[in-house]
Design a binder for these strands. Sequence first.
DNA 1: AGTTTAATTTGCAACTTCGTTAATTCTAAG
DNA 2: CTTAGAATTAACGAAGTTGCAAATTAAACT
Lengths: 230, 230
Amino acid sequence: MKAAGTAPLSPDAGLPRGRNAAMCKPKAPEANRARIIKAAIDEFASRGFKGASMDAIAARTHTTRAMINYYFGSKEKVYLAVLEHVYAEIRQAESLLDLDHLPPVDAIRSIVEFTFNYYLDHEGFVRIVVAENQARGRHLRKSKAMRSLNRPIIDTLARVIARGQAEGSFRANADPVEVHMAIAALGMFNVTNQYTFGAIFQRDMGAKGDVRRRREIVTEVIFGYLRKMA
Amino acid sequence: MKAAGTAPLSPDAGLPRGRNAAMCKPKAPEANRARIIKAAIDEFASRGFKGASMDAIAARTHTTRAMINYYFGSKEKVYLAVLEHVYAEIRQAESLLDLDHLPPVDAIRSIVEFTFNYYLDHEGFVRIVVAENQARGRHLRKSKAMRSLNRPIIDTLARVIARGQAEGSFRANADPVEVHMAIAALGMFNVTNQYTFGAIFQRDMGAKGDVRRRREIVTEVIFGYLRKMA
DNA sequence: AGTTTAATTTGCAACTTCGTTAATTCTAAG
DNA sequence: CTTAGAATTAACGAAGTTGCAAATTAAACT
């Protein structure tokens, strides 16, 4: 009897899916998965992929390393699940902005401020994105879900810009991807480079007053580019 | 025969320090140090602090791990030397721009394009800065040299902006640090986030044509903010 | 009940990595 | 030539990793 190597290997996302749905396992299967991902976010964000320790994740969840491997299969699989999770979260939050029902200028201000704030409030997300880039996108590439997951923001932005151009307030040659990039770049830099920048230029990047001022500057920078010149 | 006047310049780490200066270093002490740092830059840039392996650095230099520890003392000391080295390099390159002798607008364009290009051509530098930030500036803080090393760029930028304001082409309330930050943010993002961004939005961030176009956009963005409104 | 199957625990085995230490070579000075 | 001290090598030990296999537990189905 060794049900050892069986590993149902819950394919990618899912529940233990035998054919009988309402079957139950001794303990808590799905709730554990969620708790593990949550803990993994903190750990990966804090130490990067290589730096993170499965034991540390286990410790944060009252489970064991073996348990996590049982659920996910490997460290990399956990990381991938984390990656998809955090991206899904930000796009989900973005979708609530309802940019299509705002005047173009308001919509842009809205998305800029939202992005700036989101990065600030979700340093974990930012750190994971950075870590993934440091890993040259090795893991991200393996996720099919990513592209479809991120399409909406660009499409929405494109519509907003088009409306702004139609009403004559935005410049003609404005590429949505480039605009999104500028917004992300300015918003992220505060967070990603806060330590070197803060140490070198003696600015506490987290200081409340400075943050508000900087957010205002970022907005102005974006509009400075987007706005149609006189 | 080898250079007698060695003066190992041991920064602070305890190298041999007899009182008799012109002593006897059989081999090449300082040259090795330089080679090691160079190799260490690649390794640290490629894998981050934790990911980097002393053995790998050793392999790149035809020496051994013990040798490196003999020269530097520890992995962290090597990393610190690397950090100071790459920062010194970029500031050195910047200083050659001679911004004080250019009209304000030209000076700004000059520094923006230089920064953008430098990051692009020195991905290693960028990756090390990012890695250090991911480590929350833990190592950087230990280096006294950093602040004085980075002061000049801000001072220079401040003078350029002041001149631009005096001649009426730049807005009144422009903070040099914030401007420097915007320039750095936009220039760095291309490099730091090229993998996630590229994978998600299907843009090859390194494509020659796109690069030139993006550099132009960055310049316009900066001027969009800096330029005095009509 | 009894069996089956999933969930969980325990323990292990292979790897990697770093820093030190002791031994060895080498150069220049005396 | 001798010798002192630097440069270099080889080997070791301690930590910390991951992933797997086997043993254990507990529920669910017949």
